[in-house]
């Protein structure tokens, strides 16, 4: 992302908190190791690797091996964090994730770096908009898409203590910490970001702060829109979905394919349990090259873009 526009003040790259949190966790628990595919730099693990060289397992550019080694390390009593660009981790090694981790039930933490369209200009090979749809059918894997640095740290800390496979996205796109008082991270529980009654936006990851800004715009127009941060895509917070359905309209927003990810999960649940209109905002298929800002705008992933979709959807309720 060499050409990305400068970030507004207070916006943070979640990889920094990922790296510092992993170091703290490794200090606290000698079982923690990291497995990478020549991705020490892109995972911001230089300091970790210097400090814990024997606990930094770099298998080279070999993602199938990387995930298999993760399962083997878990067999040997370690708590491996397997960290690689989300596109290669989930795409190249999908069968290893299925058989070696999910089906074998190994305690492996899969950390998808720079997910979504974070590698904007590099194109669709490097975009990871499919990862959630690929992993979601494997019900053994908890899937967390943190909204900001704070939530990234909390999710990592929880994952280190949870005995089971987890997939966590770590965003490189700078995002602000959400302004929510007394936050507590609980896997499987969503956060209420804005209260509202006429529609609900269910977002996660880098889009939550945009959804909140959209709701603020709409509030000025007299439209009351709830915003929910659904960081855990699996297991999903059914109580929050029920409450969202009662507002009569749901829009899902995510930096992912609209097929099979958060939008898919919400559409599945509501269709079966509480039919309600659901509109999905995200990426519908491969995207062209372009900066992250450009690709977000194209997909309507901006405060105004989301607000416009809500206005339109209210008319279709």
């Amino acid at each position: 992302m060499a050409h990305a526009a400068p970030s507004p003040a207070g916006y943070k790259d979640c990889r920094n908190i990922w790296a510092s949190t992993l170091e703290k966790l490794a200090e606290e628990d000698p079982r923690i190791v990291v497995v990478v595919n020549d991705s020490i730099g892109s995972s911001k693990l230089n300091a970790f690797a210097s400090r814990f060289p024997e606990r930094t397992v770099n298998v080279g550019i070999a993602e199938q091996l990387m995930v298999g080694v993760g399962a083997g390390l878990a067999n040997g009593g370690k708590i491996p964090f397997v960290s690689a660009a989300a596109c290669f981790l989930t795409g190249r090694a999908l069968e290893q994730i299925k058989a070696d981790v999910a089906y074998s039930g190994y305690n492996v933490k899969l950390v998808g770096q720079s997910p979504g369209i974070a590698y904007g200009e590099l194109g669709a090979t490097h975009h990871s908009i499919e990862d959630l749809a690929w992993l979601r059918p494997m019900q053994q894997i908890a899937i967390v898409v943190p909204a900001d640095s704070w939530e990234t740290e909390q999710a990592l800390r929880w994952a280190a203590t949870y005995d089971g496979p987890v997939f966590i996205r770590v965003s490189r796109m700078p995002v602000p910490d959400l302004d929510i008082p007394n936050r507590v991270f609980e896997p499987g529980k969503s956060e209420l970001v804005r209260e509202g009654s006429e529609a609900t936006i269910i977002a996660n990851g880098t889009t939550v702060h945009l959804a909140a800004a959209a709701a603020d715009l709409l509030a000025q127009e007299g439209l009351s829109v709830r915003v929910v941060n659904m960081a855990t895509v699996h297991p999903i917070d059914e109580t929050a979905l029920e409450a969202a359905a009662r507002t009569g309209l749901i829009l899902t927003v995510e930096e992912a394919s609209i097929r099979g990810g958060l939008g898919g999960a919400v559409a599945e649940w509501t269709a079966e349990n509480h039919p309600v209109r659901v509109e999905r905002i995200g990426f519908d298929g491969f995207r062209s090259t372009g900066s992250v800002d450009y690709l977000f705008e194209q997909a309507g992933l901006s405060a105004e873009g989301i607000a416009a979709r809500v206005r339109g959807a209210v008319g279709r309720k």
Binding site: G68, L73, N75, E95, D100
Partner: peptide
């Protein structure tokens, strides 16, 4: 093609 990568991970742990 899954066994040897897993066994490699076990051996690294050891």
């Amino acid at each position: 093609g899954h066994g040897l990568p897993i066994a490699t991970g076990i051996a690294i742990a050891g």
